[in-house]
Design a protein around this nucleic acid. Structure first.
Lengths: 138, 138
DNA sequence: TACATTAAAGAACAAAGATCTTTAATTCAA
DNA sequence: TTGAATTAAAGATCTTTGTTCTTTAATGTA
């Protein structure tokens, strides 16, 4: 991976739909080498996927909550089981197992505070292994 | 926005590069109405942007740090100025202005702990308005 | 030097996006 | 209910893009 590859990645990170020709113009290259470079990075797994970002406020998800969850039991089985369960929840947009005082970090997107507390009481707190949950509203 | 629009959004969220024809096949529609629906949602701002996700481990970003930053001054000018500055930093992948005890929440991706502390000392702490910074390693 | 490897360009083709017109369905007011 | 206006979809068409293949130049190696 040379400096051109890295610059291509920077461009793509911000805009997945830019054409190879337009990228090539920035480096005085034709679209062929750009295509080849991108495909190589896709095949190597450097480029993971192309996704679409929505405007949460316009799709009924006005409130973002960052939420630290502590578990009672910390064995690999328990943490993996928790992650698997929470990853399926459509309100949970990101889930990380972090080091430090807490165990998991969640990014939850909901309509309002009421929906968030419903989420906590009916979808989060019902999970056996949960000890504590600390929220940061956005 | 009807149910077809919502399903289109679900598909696009996971794959920004799927063709209109392929989406249309799922609903027994031609590519024209799919194109029109997507463009409408783009113009309304429902669709925000198309981005590329990389594999952090393969681009020398093994360590993710969630970092809460508190500011000294909290006026709109100060917070906007901080956000503008930090948004330009290539190591900062997400930045949110949150309610609660802290002011900003950052998702920072770096090679290792050393690079993170370099980031804090040479790129974060140099910003005048910073009061505190609390990190959660991932 | 001679050979293999790599990167880029250019030609060529299939597929995609994008625009425009027409048709059918739906809504709304007279 | 009728008729006009609006909307959604299809189909034709054109431009651009992605993709493949071949050729050429540059680089590295025995």
């Amino acid at each position: 991976m040379d400096s051109i590859d890295k610059k291509i990645l920077n461009i793509l990170q911000d805009n997945a739909k830019i054409s190879n020709r337009e990228i090539g113009e920035k480096f005085h290259l034709s679209r062929t080498p750009i295509f080849d470079r991108i495909r190589k990075m896709e095949r190597k797994g450097i480029i993971r996927k192309y996704i679409t970002l929505l405007n949460p406020k316009k799709v009924g998800r006005d409130l973002t909550v960052f939420c630290f969850v502590s578990l009672k039991h910390h064995s690999p089985e328990f943490t993996a089981s928790f992650k698997k369960e929470i990853d399926c929840n459509p309100k949970v947009f990101e889930c990380y197992h972090i080091a430090g005082n807490h165990d998991f970090f969640l990014k939850v997107m909901v309509k309002d505070v009421e929906e968030y507390y419903n989420f906590v009481s009916t979808e989060l707190a019902v999970i056996e292994n949960i000890a504590r949950c600390k929220a940061h509203l956005y």
